[in-house]
């Protein structure tokens, strides 16, 4: 014998959807800026259909059997897309919880006996609570994906190799230098060296917050790899406090060209290339002599 809810709720799809939609549209937390109401209706319709499908089978004690796959799938899709669109977790959970209210109103209209109404409502309520937990989990997973994607994007865009002069490259490093980032930095620098036939690379670390022995080791590796390619590497942008830590930690940078600022490094690079920079007037004077 099927429960009361299982018997009539599936037939009331349109009615529940209307009540639920009204509830959501009236709610003060409605985010029309993030999602047009038509899309909200589409999402609600899809989720409700999947939920009613489960209710029809009258088996909503467990959220994991195969019959729930469809619901979980729809919910996962909705919460992932909401996470990406910038909804807060509260708003996403509220979306599922507000359905409870819609179902309550429809149940009240159709069940007269208070005891039966109470039993049905508790059962459906527990079921929806479990679903909102699923929403929460997938919402966080969605956010994690966003973070992962951003991390890889940041590491890609944060290593711009700039050709500052014919044969001279500069690479400003901003942020912490861990081993995976070092590999990206090294690779993009070395590839660019081959591409531009540059013989000097300036590694500017003004944007690196701290240099510990591990970061120093990564820097030394980058310099050694550049030398293996046949190019020289200069490290610039060393702040006084970083110079202090380097010495206190006993890191040996003696085999490496270090300069205080990018300008000094560039001047040093010009020297290595036997280039001179003069004011235009001075040049005329020398020419006239």
């Amino acid at each position: 014998m099927k429960s009361l809810a299982a018997q009539f709720l599936p037939k009331k799809h349109d009615e529940i959807l209307n009540v639920w939609m009204n509830q959501q549209l009236l709610h003060e937390g409605l985010r029309e800026d993030l999602m047009p109401n038509d899309d909200l209706r589409k999402d609600s319709d899809e989720l409700l259909k999947a939920i009613l499908e489960v209710i029809k089978k009258d088996n909503f004690s467990d959220v994991n059997p195969d019959e729930f796959e469809k619901v979980n799938e729809v919910l996962a899709g909705i919460s992932t897309s909401r996470a990406m669109n910038g909804f807060s977790p509260r708003e996403t959970a509220l979306f599922v919880i507000s359905l409870k209210e819609g179902l309550r109103i429809v149940l009240e209209k159709n069940i007269e006996d208070p005891k039966a109404l109470y039993d049905e409502f508790v059962r459906i309520s527990t079921f929806l609570d479990k679903l909102s937990l699923v929403t929460f989990e997938t919402f966080i997973k969605g956010r994690e994906e966003v973070i992962l994607r951003q991390t890889s994007e940041i590491s890609e865009i944060s290593t711009p190799v700039i050709q500052v002069w014919d044969g001279i490259l500069a690479l400003p490093i901003i942020g912490t230098l861990d081993s995976s980032r070092t590999q990206i930095v090294m690779e993009s620098l070395l590839v660019k060296i081959v591409e531009t036939e540059s013989t000097i690379a300036i590694l500017d670390i003004s944007g690196v917050p701290a240099v510990d022995s591990l970061v120093a080791q990564h820097l030394i590796k980058t310099v050694s790899a550049t030398r293996l390619m046949g190019a020289e590497c200069i490290i610039s942008g060393i702040r006084p406090e970083i110079a202090q830590t380097i010495v206190h930690l006993g890191i040996d940078l003696s085999g490496i060209n270090t300069k205080a600022s990018l300008a000094h490094a560039l001047k040093f690079a010009f020297n290595l290339k036997r280039l001179e920079v003069r004011k235009a007037g001075e040049f005329k004077k020398i020419a006239a002599e």
């Binding site: 081959v194 790899a225 390619m229």
Partner: peptide, 19 residues
């Protein structure tokens, strides 16, 4: 020694052979 590929240079450094 000329023309070492970037990937080869990075690998040699990681291996501990700065030559």
């Amino acid at each position: 020694v000329v023309g070492m590929q970037p990937a080869v240079a990075i690998t040699l450094i990681e291996l501990g052979l700065p030559m």
